[in-house]
Simulated scan of single mutants.
Amino acid sequence: MGRHPYFTHTEFEVRLARLKARMAAAQVDVALFDEIEAMTWISGFGSSANRWRCVAIPMSAKPFFLIRALDASVCRERSWIEDVPTYRDWEDPMPVLARTLAARGLASARIGLDFESYGMSVRRFAAMKTALPDATFIDIGAVIAELRLIKSPAEIELLRRAARIADQALLNAAEVCRPGGTQREAAKVAQMTFVEMGGDPYRPGPITAGRGWDFLHGHLGDEPLAKGDVVHIELTPRIHGYSSRVMRCVVLGEPEPERLRAAAILAELQDRQIATMKPGTRATDVDAILRDGVIAAGLRSTYDNITAYTLGLYGDAGPRTSDFTRIFHPGAEWELEAGMVFHVYASAGGAALSESVLVTENGPELLTGLPRGLLVNA
């Protein structure tokens, strides 16, 4: 049996029990998971989708991890799942899946799938149905994403550590944002800080320079920075895949009065927004504080993006850069619960800032802790 470098076997037993309760409610005999975040959360290991792979969790029989032969050894080292059937790179994995399920008496099972999984193409699903003609396929939705919303104490500790890395890396990156410097240098410094502080060697996050405000998700450039530039830095460090995030703008030179005003308004509105993040609060009410406040202050004519989204585990080879299992927007009628963690962010009027926030039984806990406003390099 493999051993995870951070989580205990008991942690995975609790996760498995929670998952099986959901499976029982959905009346499925076995569930298959092929998104890297879902596989990693339930098994302790995930790999890229260069070749299809999945974790199978039966209600009663032995679980297994179907994977290409090249990745089987590292899978066994990391995962608590002992049975790892394999196939060669040029082979079709579906017959192996069918044989493994049949050996467990599950050839005609009710099989639970997430019909919105990014790992399940139309062609792959057709091949699965062909390989398992007697099975019935049930859409159980993004069940593991839902289970991941409430973080365990061990997960929260990783997110706290990631937040400390985010704060320090942003300060270090901001320091090199000077006239004549480059965005690339800031990215290098941020990534070096990640690794030096024990984080995963992963890309730093969006770093881009501009002179308006609508450039938050621009591209890393090589042009020398100049006085008057604003460098948007949003850092996304990870530890064992768990990411906290922080966002600030670095102004090169004296900030314009309009930008200073915008930053002050955003900070005040976001402080109010975060203060309401308590168990039982509707997400739409939290969202409205910032959204309506920004428009009322004349900083934006419309606010077409969300104001917060879920934080937690991110796969190192997944297509999603953010987890939108829960998002703050005008129609978000769901309620906050203790153990949820969010990236709360705001941008308008040439300023941008964000925090990582844990919802506790006693209210919000800021995981990140930088000064709330513009960073200025005069």
Rank of each mutant, 00 (worst) to 15 (best):
L16V: 07
A296H: 04
G241K: 01
M94Y: 10
V251D: 02
A166L: 14
E155C: 08
G218R: 06
Q270L: 10
R18W: 02
I150Y: 09
D316G: 01
R326H: 03
T360A: 00
G318H: 07
R211G: 09
R124Q: 12
P255I: 06
A127Y: 02
D92A: 03
V376A: 06
A283T: 10
K188F: 00
M120Q: 09
G280I: 11
A102F: 03
R238P: 03
H4S: 07
Y87R: 03
Q273H: 00
I289M: 09
R123I: 11
I81K: 13
P63L: 15
E35H: 12
W90E: 11
S244G: 12
L101D: 13
E223A: 15
G280K: 11
S121D: 15
W41K: 05
D89I: 10
P364D: 04
R320I: 05
P206S: 12
A226F: 00
D29P: 14
A275K: 06
R291V: 07
L336D: 13
K20D: 06
T307Y: 00
E77M: 11
M1E: 10
R78P: 03
D214T: 03
I144W: 11
K227S: 02
L290K: 13
R123W: 08
M247R: 03
M59A: 15
A332Y: 01
A187R: 09
A142L: 08
R161P: 00
G363T: 02
L266V: 11
M39E: 15
L171S: 11
R51F: 04
D71Q: 15
Q191C: 05
S356F: 01
L313P: 04
P279M: 08
P204S: 10
A61P: 12
A102W: 03
L101G: 12
L366R: 15
T368R: 00
D229H: 10
A378F: 04
G350D: 09
I207M: 01
P93E: 05
A21Q: 15
A127T: 07
R291W: 02
P204Y: 07
S79L: 13
F45W: 02
G221L: 04
S244H: 05
P133Q: 09
L106C: 08
P63S: 14
A163G: 01
F125W: 06
L252H: 09
S322N: 01
I265D: 02
P85T: 13
A264Y: 02
R178N: 01
R245Y: 00
F33V: 10
M197V: 01
A283V: 12
G205R: 00
E254T: 15
M120Y: 05
P206E: 08
V357P: 07
I140V: 12
S121H: 14
I144D: 11
R372K: 03
E335I: 10
F33N: 07
R178G: 01
F64M: 10
I42R: 02
V344H: 04
A162L: 02
P58G: 12
A72R: 13
